[in-house]
């Protein structure tokens, strides 16, 4: 993998992880966590692990985000931290 792309995606990965943990609105946190999973999927496609990238795109960015949004809608949306 081209190391410049690697570095850019990894920096965005750290940024999205920090934002999804620091944002007060839990629905935004769930969506930004979906972005995190998609960046992870890009990284794995670049590492020649296409099977893992497929699974992460379906399961990480898809099913996890749906689970999180369903839970946020059935409980409270605001977070104290």
């Amino acid at each position: 993998m081209i190391w410049q792309f690697d570095l850019i995606i990894l920096v965005f990965l750290v940024i999205t992880a920090l934002i999804s943990l620091s944002v007060k609105d839990l629905l935004s946190a769930a969506m930004i966590f979906g972005v995190y999973s998609f960046l992870m999927c890009l990284l794995w496609a670049g590492m020649a692990a296409v099977d893992v990238a497929f699974t992460e795109a379906a399961v990480g960015a898809g099913v996890s985000a749906v689970f999180l949004i369903a839970t946020v809608l059935r409980t409270s949306r605001r977070s104290s931290d």
Binding site: M1, A17, S20, L21, L26, A29, A30, F33, Y36, S37, M40, L43, W44, M47, A48, A49, V52, G60, S64, L68, T71, V72, T75, S79, S80, D81
Partner: peptide
């Protein structure tokens, strides 16, 4: 403090470990 935030943190922890293992095969 929030339980959903804790679970998001757990997912981030897991993906970091998976990322490390996949990067060994490169």
């Amino acid at each position: 403090n929030n339980l959903i935030k804790k679970l998001i943190g757990m997912s981030i922890f897991q993906t970091a470990i998976i990322l490390f293992y996949v990067s060994i095969g490169v």
